[in-house]
Simulated scan of single mutants.
Amino acid sequence: MKILVFLVLLGLHSAAAGIHSLKNILTMSSQVPNSPEFVIVGMVDDVQIYHYDSNTRRLEPKQDWANRVTEDDPQFWERKTARCLDTQHLFKGYIKTLKHRFNQTGGVHIFQWMVGCEWDDETGEVNGFRQVGYDGEDFLSWDVKTNTWIAPKQQAVIIKNNWNNDKALMAYYKNDITQEFPDRLKKFVNYGRSSLMRTELPSVSLLQKTPSSPVSCFATGFYPDRAEIFWRKDGEELHENVELGEILPNHDGSFQMNVDLNLSPVTPEDWRRYECVFHLSAVKDDIITKLDKTAIQTNWGKTGFPLGAVIGVVVVLLLLVVGITGFFLWKKRNAKQPPGLGSPAPSGRWTEDGTRTRG
């Protein structure tokens, strides 16, 4: 089984300026060492705002401004914590049933549920979604237009039919997506507007470890993480002899990224034809850095390699992995769908044939 772990700060991106998203990812795991059995991560516009896991058994805010929700709803965190506990028990039954359906007796298994909505604050349009995955593959998807489940896997057909025939359950799902999630999203966007809407430009440096190493164009300190960095020659973006790194979080909440250029096929007289371009979403002007030997910082010359810019990243990543596990591998066609909070279904038990009992 192939599992890909996503970090919250590298999450899915809002579609465009003016479009906001509330994303919840709920994960139940089986036999994953050193990890909470059940985790819920909630994000607004790609920023983690709350977290729940089966070790702490508490839903807690992760941004100071997120706690403002108690101004209008003093019992918000207590009420949602109780709902998370119910969902935890429900998901335990889900993964047990799926292991039975797939004839699995042991090993690591992951059941995941993505739910949430997008809201265009200019047009007022709201789009909701729900996706269910098992062991890194699509298991069930929800059609918002027809308010019905679709089963891409044969093992999911019975479950799909039982859920679709439960009218109370489907009415619950529809209300969740059309009312509760959009209302909560609008509140959180209002509370965190100054933080969510901010933009910070990076410092950009050219780095090289040895004279024969690729030249790395390194940008750090930018926000948000909707950014691009690339090399171009004579104004045309390069796709050969370049290697793009991941966007990584800094300790202060900003981000860093790099793109390397292999100089072995480049003659010294052609250096002036190359430049590094950094583009930040919602910012009009790009940051352009010419390939200039005198501007390159190295650890073999007098300048010294600027490791200070990246110190702390490994620690941050380890903390994130410990606190936020179980993000799962969606197929590429689903990667742009943003995930929101709530029990995936009303209270009850899920039986071996996929039906739900009340109580």
Results as ranks from 00 to 15, higher is better:
Ile229Lys: 00
Asp176His: 15
Pro338Cys: 15
Thr56His: 12
Thr220Ala: 14
Leu319Ala: 02
Gln154Thr: 09
Gln208Ile: 04
Met28Phe: 00
Ile324Gly: 00
Val157Ser: 04
Thr294Met: 03
His109Gln: 12
Gly116Trp: 00
Gly340Glu: 05
Asp285Val: 00
Gly308Ile: 03
Ser29Leu: 05
Ser212His: 11
Leu261Gly: 11
Val144His: 15
Glu180Met: 08
Asp166Gln: 10
Ala171Leu: 06
Gln179Pro: 00
Phe230Tyr: 15
Ala151His: 12
Arg83Gln: 11
Pro152Glu: 01
His89Cys: 04
Asn55Asp: 11
Glu37Ile: 14
Lys92Gly: 14
Trp231Ala: 02
Ile19Met: 08
Asn250Tyr: 10
Glu122Trp: 07
Ile287Glu: 03
Ser213Leu: 03
Lys332Met: 09
Ile3Leu: 14
Ala17Tyr: 08
Leu7Ser: 14
Phe139Lys: 05
Asp225Glu: 10
Ser203Asn: 12
Glu200Phe: 00
Thr97Lys: 07
Gln297Thr: 13
Pro344Ser: 11
Lys99Met: 13
Glu37Pro: 10
Gly348Leu: 10
Lys302Val: 10
Leu307Thr: 06
Lys331Leu: 07
Val310Phe: 02
Leu201Glu: 10
Lys167Thr: 12
Ala151Ser: 15
Val314Leu: 09
Val321Gly: 01
Arg272Lys: 15
His89Gln: 14
Leu26Ile: 12
Asp86Thr: 08
Val32Thr: 12
Trp163Gln: 15
Ser35Tyr: 01
Ser281Asn: 05
Tyr134Leu: 04
Thr351Trp: 06
Lys80Arg: 11
Arg273Ala: 04
Lys96Asp: 13
Phe278Arg: 00
Lys2Asn: 10
Leu7Pro: 14
Ser281Met: 06
Gly301Phe: 13
Gln256Ile: 02
Pro265Ala: 08
Gly124Ser: 09
Gln155Leu: 07
Leu26Cys: 09
Trp300Ser: 11
Pro33His: 01
Asp135His: 01
Cys117Val: 15
Gln154Tyr: 04
Met257Glu: 07
Tyr172Val: 08
His89Asn: 13
Gly323Phe: 07
Val310Thr: 06
Lys290Ala: 05
Phe76Val: 02
Thr87Arg: 06
Gly340Met: 04
Ile49Asn: 08
Val204Lys: 05
Phe305Gln: 02
Arg58Gly: 02
Asp252Thr: 01
Gly133Ser: 14
Glu269Met: 03
His51Leu: 06
Lys174Ala: 10
Leu7Arg: 06
Leu317His: 02
Gly312Val: 01
Asn241Gly: 00
Arg101Phe: 05
Thr220Glu: 12
Lys23Val: 14
Val277Asn: 04
Glu60Met: 09
Trp231Pro: 04
Thr146Lys: 15
Ala17Val: 11
Leu185Asn: 02
Asp225Leu: 07
Phe6Asn: 13
Leu98Arg: 06
Glu246Asn: 07
Val8Ile: 12
Ile296Glu: 06
Tyr173Pro: 03
Trp163Asp: 10
Ser281Cys: 05
Val32Lys: 05
Ile159Leu: 15
Leu185Arg: 05
Glu180Leu: 09
Arg226Asp: 13
Phe327Asp: 00
Asn103Gly: 03
Gly354Trp: 11
Glu78Leu: 08
